[in-house]
Computed example of a mutant assay.
Amino acid sequence: MSITAVPLRPISKGSLSRLWIGVAAVALAAGGLAWAGQRGVADTPASFLASNAGEAGVVTTDSGLQYKVIEAGTGTSPSTADVALVGYKGALLDGTTFDENPQTAMPIDGVVPGFSEGLQLMKKGAKFRFWIPPQLGYGDQAAGPIPAGSVLVFDVTLHDFKSKAEIMQMQRQGGATPPPAP
């Protein structure tokens, strides 16, 4: 058996220094890219809402609810004495969907305050996006898949609404109430 010897050349002067400078440059570049990737990502609900308030078409109410009209509706708006037929998708700021329903009846006064306020701004056929701050949502309480202190993002379509009194009368007259027509 024969062994081939390969002579190793000595490292030239300054090569080790250049290697460490290269490692430092790569580390700085990685840190810079990580920082740039985080720009625009809100650290807190308050910082997100402050940034979002400046976006085109976003309206902030006195209570802090933010909304954007995607499609305007027609007619009148519901009140707290009404039951609305809505389609919605609820998500967190990171895009995680926590609830979705294409058509469901909801008493206006039976949902979180921000959702109730937003529904009362809509007209039949309208499509809105709501950004509900924690104080108008679930606050410091976790609710199922929704962490405490979360901003809730809803895409909502108001199909129709009827008064609770009208629904009660329909139930007395004919038993089950058919859902309002979309």
Rank of each mutant, 00 (worst) to 15 (best):
R129I: 12
Q103E: 14
P133L: 10
A91W: 02
T80V: 12
G57Q: 04
L93I: 11
A34I: 10
W35K: 09
G22K: 02
L8K: 15
Y88M: 14
A165M: 03
S77V: 01
T157D: 06
L28I: 15
P45H: 08
T61F: 05
G137I: 00
A53P: 02
G87S: 10
L49Q: 01
A84C: 03
V26M: 13
G31H: 08
A27V: 15
V83M: 11
P178N: 08
T96K: 02
L65H: 09
F154M: 09
A176W: 06
G87C: 07
D99E: 15
R172Y: 08
T61Q: 10
S79L: 04
L19W: 10
G64M: 09
Q66M: 13
E55T: 11
A165I: 06
G125H: 03
S47Q: 13
D160M: 01
A5C: 05
P147D: 09
T157C: 06
G22A: 14
S163K: 09
I21R: 13
L65C: 09
A105R: 15
L28S: 13
H159I: 02
V153S: 02
G118Y: 09
Q38D: 13
L121W: 02
L33A: 14
D160F: 01
T177Y: 14
P78Y: 06
K13L: 11
W20E: 14
N52T: 02
P107Y: 09
E166V: 03
I11H: 09
A91I: 00
G75K: 04
V86D: 01
E55Y: 01
M122D: 07
W131Q: 11
V58Y: 00
F161W: 11
M168N: 14
S63P: 05
P133Y: 08
K68S: 10
F48C: 01
D94M: 00
V23A: 13
T61D: 07
V111R: 02
S17Q: 13
P147A: 10
A165G: 02
K127D: 11
I70N: 12
Y138I: 08
T74M: 04
L93Q: 11
L49A: 00
D155Y: 03
L119Y: 07
L119C: 06
Y67L: 14
V69C: 08
T96R: 02
G95T: 01
L28Y: 01
V156C: 01
K123A: 15
P7E: 14
P182L: 11
G139R: 03
A81G: 13
L19V: 11
G32D: 03
G64N: 04
G149I: 03
Q120V: 04
A56W: 00
F161G: 01
Q38M: 14
S47V: 05
G139K: 11
D62Y: 06
G174W: 07
A126F: 04
A46K: 11
A27M: 14
V69I: 15
Y138G: 10
